[in-house]
Design a protein around this nucleic acid. Structure first.
Lengths: 330, 330
DNA sequence: ACGTTTACCGTAAACGATTATATAGGCCCG
DNA sequence: CGGGCCTATATAATCGTTTACGGTAAACGT
């Protein structure tokens, strides 16, 4: 593989000149530049970004740790991040933590070894693995997306979860439901807590108490939603409506409803959190609180880039709005 | 940020020794090693993978170019690739070509500058942008996934498209349909051609001619599927069944059917290509030919790693099986 | 007592770029 | 005609590792 030296030799100039015509870092006589470009073409030369990074101490790469790229929410978030990053000349390395603290730890360290210029992290639980804690000390810029780790001051871009849950619950209350079950995600995650909080706010506003048998925690997977729904339906006085607080669990809940042949919304109303591309295709169409994952990813990169320019910025938190899409299941 | 030199100094050994205890590349006295590890902890030292890469001429990173990570098919494919890669100590950089030759070109070159050890590519159309052509010359290992570029000999992992389309079409024929429309993806893509071929095979086997008004090309997006379906339904003698050859376009087609209130499968039967997590939730449940994107990604990395070990392997092609999942829409 | 083996460890030269500093040549001007 | 000034280019140090070569000292054999 050709190096800058080969190009210099072929063009009959020094490596410095080659570097400068490539990067435009200082004026070069037009004929000289032309000779250099010609040599580059001829040798099919691709500048070595690794060497460049070593020298300049910057990789123009951003690490992203999400729980699972297979989840449409994160896929879209990552896409938003990628578009924003590319736009600014950065690349992205994605890692899937699978909601596993160990993996999170592993990946964050790997990304540090690779000298990422910055990181986007959807932290596992309220957690903050050792690696994330150290990261916070290290001075390497990073921003939390979707959730944040407790006790760590850092930039964050999050959905307005409280508002979303409040909207969903209020919507159900307005339809006359008073026994409203809630299916929550991973215990301890900020998303879970905030969504529960919004649910509670709405109930309180209507003077209703919290019935703890109606609040169940699941995993973040479809199976978790399925089990959670089973638990709710097997209560002696089951709810007449359910608020499922994340997309995969909503999928599981719907599967269970269909399996049992439960009539929706007559026997049970249901509202999900997070839009799903097929929400309007199922019968009846699914009512959801929609998030804006693309925007979350995009703006997170925005924050990161700003911090890259000015490391002394104080931490900022962006809340991305959510919308209630009332459809057939409520 | 601490370097290996700092660690060496603190531990009172040479940099060579530090390097060797980190990499286990030569025996080091236990007490010495302990001192080194202690120094590493103390300094929160993270070896600089950039410098390492420059020296060893290997990045342990693999570039992946797909059309859109937001498409569940590619998300799952990438996930399969990532799992296989991580397992072997590699990281992955994902790029979205958006079926745009220019972007493909851009990204492939970027990945070369970053000195990826290898690439996974879902080439745009039959295309092969200049960058891909050069890549083929360069000797850098890469493998095609999902589709392949014509005229380039390289490893490839693909679905058995002909078989899939044959299965889908035969299934419809067996249900008595004789006018079967087909919604194809991007003209020129190998997937498109192979699926069309399978469709034709099945028709021929039943002694039916190809009616070219029944074969329509769309984009690869939902809107494309929607338009394609509209075109089919507006024929003077519309088809009684439709085979939609990719997931997003199937989504679009279903939307259009719902919008028009067409009775499925009575007025129109439909079968899609590629499984969808919600296929069983819609009414009626969607019949599809399911692919195995995870396996495609996983095995592609397998091929790549083998080639990394032995660059002289001759090109291999893996066909991943598909399955017909007969459900309610047929 | 001395050469040999063995077990550890250190020195310094790459890897391929960027960039501060130096230099060479040409031109203008008093 | 010499000095000053520009423009265009070259030289060489540097980034943080890996690793080919050696070196040193203790243990051992005779």
């Amino acid at each position: 593989m050709a190096t800058i030296k080969d190009v210099a030799r072929l063009a009959g100039v020094s490596v410095a000149t080659v570097s400068h015509v490539i990067n435009g870092t200082r004026p070069v006589a037009p004929e000289t530049a032309a000779r250099v470009w010609k040599a580059i073409k001829e040798l099919d030369y691709h500048p070595n970004a690794v060497a460049r990074s070593l020298r300049t101490r910057t990789t123009h790469a951003i690490g992203v740790v999400v729980s699972d790229i297979t989840n449409p929410f994160f896929a879209t978030l990552v896409r938003g991040a990628e578009d924003a990053a590319i736009e600014a000349g950065y690349s992205i390395i994605v890692c899937n933590s699978d909601e596993d603290l160990q993996k999170e730890d592993l990946y964050v360290n790997m990304l540090r070894r690779r000298r990422m210029d910055g990181l986007l992290i959807a932290p596992v639980r309220d957690g903050a693995s050792p690696a994330v804690q150290e990261l916070a000390q290290s001075g390497i810029p990073f921003v939390f997306v979707d959730r944040k780790a407790k006790g760590i001051e850092a930039d964050a871009v999050l959905s307005d979860n409280v508002q979303g849950a409040y909207l969903a619950t209020t919507h159900l209350l307005e339809r006359g439901h008073t026994r409203i079950g809630i299916i929550l995600g991973i215990k301890g995650a900020t998303t879970t807590e905030e969504r529960f909080h919004g649910y509670r706010l709405a109930l309180e506003e209507h003077g209703l108490p919290i019935d703890h048998r109606l609040v169940v925690y699941g995993s973040y997977r479809a199976e978790g939603g399925q089990e959670a729904l089973r638990a709710l339906l097997s209560l002696s006085d089951p709810p007449t409506a359910v608020f499922s607080t994340n997309n995969l669990m909503t999928l599981g809940a719907l599967r269970e409803l269909r399996r049992r042949g439960v009539k929706v919304p007559e026997e049970l109303a249901i509202v999900g959190f997070d839009e799903l591309e097929w929400a309007e295709l199922v019968e009846p169409p699914l009512t959801v609180v929609s998030q804006r994952p693309y925007e979350i990813g995009h703006r997170a990169i925005g924050l990161l880039l700003e911090r890259l320019r000015d490391p002394d910025l104080k931490p900022r938190e962006i809340r991305v709005p959510v919308d209630l899409k009332a459809r057939g299941t409520t």
